[in-house]
Design a protein around this nucleic acid. Structure first.
Length: 754
DNA sequence: ATAGGGTTAG
């Protein structure tokens, strides 16, 4: 090998950017090595696979090479198949066929078939299949396997099977591919048959089964397999966590996550995003924070998907401040998902102006919004009453960005006009939409009619609704509410009778609350048991206090029927969110933020009830309910106190005292149930210092440090950030000025703790 | 010097 060749090869290993590649290319050219197959091949690898945004350069390298070999073609085809435009991969393959001196080999087919799979383009796939046949490569093990997954992606399981049976000696990978194909085609029993037929299985086989079952919603069968499979790896665990989370079984997902940690394996970015997604959907804020601390500790913060999941968890739990912190400190590249999650976080809380601001920042940063982004943006406009801006953004979406509006976008627009009281405009919009309106659209309009008491239009809308979704009792409830508000009891009775005739049942409303990282759920008019008893008792105590001190009068407008006022009051007083709040107030430390997630909408009475508790008890309450779009919707009740204090829930003064002083952890292995509590009021400066630290992200640094000391404690016990600060003060980090500062401030607390 | 099957956020 010549000296110049050696220099080139060593330069290649340091090449990181397109600029570097340009320089190396210049050197290669000057040294007369641009036709050297080894060197030229290396340059193409760099451009096609190792440097982002250099794929076009790689393609030019190949085109200008007088004698590209098969390897170069394959590298380019491979790079293009996994790029944003896999179509190029097919084009390069065609180009290769035309230069007949270097015919495609099994590698070329494997790569280009992958592109066809990514494109979900059956015609392309089929032509490639024919090309492979003419070269006798269609029964090649690797080509065949990729072809199976190509047909599966395109939705043609029977073709996949035909390819499979032609492979002379299918190995375990080919078997796994055909197994996956049956699951992709939602043919679970077909997959079961294949699984039974398989002459050999490996770990991936079992993982395919797990993923297939969870995607089909067969969680019990999945868990059965999970328990009996011969061994488990990261993917098995992640699959179970994600599977539970996607199917709405959040506590199960978090249970599996705990088991994963308990089993001694380390969570990876996939199991973490799965667990975070469960936290986000369930509103498990504290657990989310623990996961955040862990992520900081093990150094996974650079991974975009992890950051996006964290961001989403915080915003769905009603803490936009933390969401923004994660967003602004993101190490990896901000993707469209990051921007959209951030925007959705603001949108859920009704910060219309922030949404618009971030949207513009996103555009300036060069990130192109997609359809999902616009749903959040339009949603924000409708909730913040920004009719004009919403209208402008809708046209921007179609005109500037050329995004085809989906029914969800139209729904936002109907809501935008509806909420602004422009009912006629909303109605006309629905009638002239290019897509046929669905039940959600009419329901949105019906909701607006209900809000503005427009009986006439409500009746008009109601003519269209039952034919689209006859079994939705919510619509009947809405209509009957409109009549009830107007005092038209005969009409109310009529609606109720028709509901009874059709044997409609209301979806039971539930609310969940997280206490010590355990989720408790309550159902309206729940059966009495130990937990609900506690909630009911606290609730009647609260009711009394609110009536006396806050002048609480139950708002019973949303109760359907014409019954005695007292009875109505009884009905609304049993709503699950009230039980959850009461339970939270009974169980949580005094002054903690109360976070509740509800599956249905919160009624008017519960809304004002929460506001009143917040005022009378000086509590921050975050309620998330299911909004029309099926996303989280936060109502945040803040008293004056919390507005002036920095809005970071985990470091509220009261909570800090309670937790530090009732600390169950006075030494390794020993558990004290009760500790004498001297009553200390923390002085405001400490409170401010701590909140600033949390806002600037330093607290997590402490968490990481302390978790490294006591990982066992970290997972087994409920863990709060301020405890960490106290613990870290105890350990005495004298080297770090920042830690010393906190240690100095928290020292007094630490002493009590010992 | 290149391959094929399983888990990832809005």
């Amino acid at each position: 090998m010549s000296r110049a060749e050696k220099v080139c090869l060593s330069l290649v290993s340091y090449c990181k950017t397109l600029g570097n590649l340009n320089q190396i290319h210049a050197f290669v050219y000057k040294s007369g090595l641009e036709t050297n197959p080894l060197i030229a091949g290396k340059l193409v690898i760099l451009g096609a696979l190792q440097i982002s945004d250099a794929i076009d350069y790689a393609r030019r390298l190949l085109i200008h090479n007088p004698n590209p070999d098969v390897f170069m073609y394959n590298t380019l085809i491979r790079g293009e198949s996994q790029s944003d435009s896999p179509k190029n991969s097919v084009n390069s393959f065609i180009y290769m066929l035309r230069q007949s001196y270097s015919p495609p080999d099994s590698f070329s087919f494997a790569f280009v078939l992958k592109a066809a799979a990514n494109l979900r383009c059956l015609t392309t796939g089929f032509q490639l299949h024919c090309q492979a046949m003419t070269r006798g490569l269609d029964t090649h093990l690797f080509v065949g396997t990729t072809m199976i997954s190509m047909y599966a992606e395109c939705g043609f399981v029977e073709f996949a099977w035909k390819v499979f049976v032609q492979i002379p000696q299918p190995n375990v990978v080919a078997w796994n591919a055909i197994l996956t194909a049956y699951f992709r085609g939602s043919d679970v029993s077909g997959a079961d048959t294949v699984f039974g037929l398989m002459p050999f299985r490996n770990l991936t086989t079992w993982n395919v089964m797990l993923a297939g079952y969870t995607k089909a919603g067969e969680l019990e069968r999945a868990e059965g397999l999970f328990l009996k499979m011969p061994s488990r790896d990261d993917v098995s665990w992640s699959t179970m966590i994600v599977g539970f989370s996607h199917n709405g079984c959040f506590d199960e997902a978090l249970r599996v996550f705990r088991e994963l940690v308990g089993s001694g394996s380390k969570p990876n970015e996939v199991s973490l995003t799965g667990a975070l997604s469960a936290c986000a959907q369930a509103g498990a804020f504290k657990f989310g924070m623990v996961l955040h601390a862990f992520i900081e500790k093990v150094g996974l913060v650079w991974i975009t998907s992890v950051n996006n999941a964290l961001l989403d968890t915080y915003s769905k739990c009603g803490n936009v401040l933390m969401a923004r912190l994660v967003f602004e400190r993101m190490l990896g590249k901000k993707t469209i998902v990051s921007w959209t999650s951030m925007i959705a976080g603001f949108a859920m809380q009704g910060y219309g102006e922030e949404v618009i601001k971030y949207f513009h920042e996103m555009e300036e940063s060069g990130t192109r919004p997609d359809g999902v982004t616009f749903i959040s943006v339009l949603y924000a406009c409708s909730h913040a009453g920004l009719v004009e801006q919403g209208h402008e953004l809708f046209s921007k979406m179609t005109e500037t960005y050329d995004i085809e509006p989906t029914i969800e976008h139209y729904g936002c627009m109907v809501d935008l006009y509806g909420r602004a009281g422009q009912l006629r405009k909303a109605y006309n919009f629905v009638v002239q939409m290019p897509v046929p309106p669905n039940a959600v659209i009419w329901r949105t309009l019906l909701g607006a009619c209900s809000f503005f008491g427009d009986i006439e239009m409500a009746e008009q809308v109601n003519k269209r609704l039952p034919e689209l979704d006859p079994d939705n009792c919510g619509d009947h409830v809405l209509l009957s509410n409109i009549y009830a508000f107007a005092g038209k009891w005969k009409d109310v009775a009529m609606v109720r009778r028709s509901m009874a005739e059709k044997n409609m049942k209301k979806i039971p409303g539930w609310s969940m609350i997280e206490i010590d990282k355990v989720m408790y759920s309550f159902v309206a008019g729940d059966k009495r048991n130990e937990i609900t008893e506690e909630a009911y008792n606290k609730l009647s105590e609260i009711m009394l206090k609110l009536k006396v001190k806050g002048g609480y009068i139950p708002e019973v407008g949303s109760v359907l029927h014409d019954i005695e006022e007292e009875e109505k009051e009884d009905t609304v007083s049993k709503h699950s969110e009230k039980l959850a709040v009461a339970f939270g107030m009974a169980r949580l430390c005094k002054g903690s933020t109360i976070r509740i997630v509800k599956n249905l909408r919160v009624c008017k009475d519960c809304h004002s009830f929460m506001k009143l508790i917040s005022k009378v008890y000086g509590l921050e309450i975050v309620v998330r309910d299911r909004s029309r779009l099926g996303k989280g919707y936060c109502i945040k009740f803040l008293t004056d106190l919390q507005v002036t204090a920095v809005n970071v829930p985990s470091i509220r003064i009261e909570e800090l005292n309670d937790n530090v002083l009732c600390n169950r952890r006075s030494g390794p292995g020993t558990i004290k149930t009760k500790v004498e509590r001297p009553s200390i009021v923390m002085n405001p400066p400490l409170h401010l210092v701590l909140s600033r630290l949390l806002v600037t992200g330093y607290i997590f640094f402490f968490v990481s440090r302390i978790a490294a000391f006591e990982p066992r404690v970290f997972w087994k016990q409920p863990f709060y950030l301020h405890e960490v600060v106290v613990l870290s003060a105890k350990k005495g980090h004298s080297g770090n000025p920042l830690l010393s500062a906190v240690a100095a401030v928290t020292h007094r607390r630490a002493m009590f703790h010992c």
